[in-house]
């Protein structure tokens, strides 16, 4: 049985346990197998909709303790009960809205469309998922994405990102454009506004812009 692994935002590895693959013995085997990649990295075990027994947690904890090269950080879960059990056992456990993580995960699981050219005036590129452009978006060109848009070049045309989504971002190395549409909202820029290393994030109904240089 295989478990899903992913990198987490606290610079570590997260193993996701779901009700379908919840089996302590197999989980131990899995950790043993993958110990090479877990060396000197923090480890988080996530129980997604799973409520383990006290003895399960005990067994897992003692198993990990025997392996000094794994820096076990604790558990993460979507269920209150699991959190209470692990806290009783003396392990940190984050309760996390895994629902939100799943939606962003889905967006990144959708096909990323790579465009290895400059999108020129009059051309239109669209995708239901993310779009990555290795080139520019010139004035008069349009890029439409259901997910995020990443531009490894200049954005001078129209970018529409996150159509039908509530959270999304647009990144570009250089931006000088009249407007960007994101999640159905639009951001208007002044004629002379220029950004370098631009990042526009739409989260919680708000638009936030980061850039290293702004003129």
């Amino acid at each position: 049985m295989d478990y899903k692994i992913r990198g987490t935002n606290i610079l570590g590895i997260e193993i996701i346990v779901t009700p379908q693959n919840f089996d302590i013995e197999k989980l131990k085997m899995f950790i043993k197998e993958k110990s090479a990649i877990m060396r000197k990295t923090r480890l988080v075990i996530t129980f997604d909709d799973v409520i383990p027994q006290e003895k399960d947690i005990q067994e897992l904890a003692s198993f990990i303790k025997e392996r000094p090269d794994i820096l076990f950080c604790g558990f993460k879960t979507s269920r209150k009960e699991t959190r209470e059990i692990s806290l009783q056992m003396g392990f940190p456990c984050d309760i996390s809205n895994l629902e939100l993580e799943k939606t962003t995960e889905r967006a990144s699981n959708e096909e990323i469309k790579f465009i290895k050219k400059t999108v020129r005036s009059g051309e239109k590129v669209s995708s239901s998922g993310d779009i990555a452009i290795l080139g520019d978006i010139n004035p008069g060109a349009e890029v439409e994405a259901g997910g995020n848009i990443y531009i490894f070049g200049s954005l001078r045309g129209l970018a529409k990102a996150g159509i039908g989504k509530r959270e999304c971002e647009v990144r570009a190395l250089f931006v000088q454009t009249p407007r960007i549409e994101i999640c159905g909202q639009e951001k208007i820029f002044e004629r002379e506004e220029r950004f370098h290393n631009f990042r526009l994030i739409f989260k919680n109904g708000k638009i936030r812009i980061n850039s290293t240089e702004r003129t």
Binding site: V119, R120, S121, G122, N138, P139, G140
Partner: peptide, 8 residues
């Protein structure tokens, strides 16, 4: 812009 269009 027109040159860009033509190039495309």
């Amino acid at each position: 812009r027109d040159a860009d269009r033509v190039t495309g």
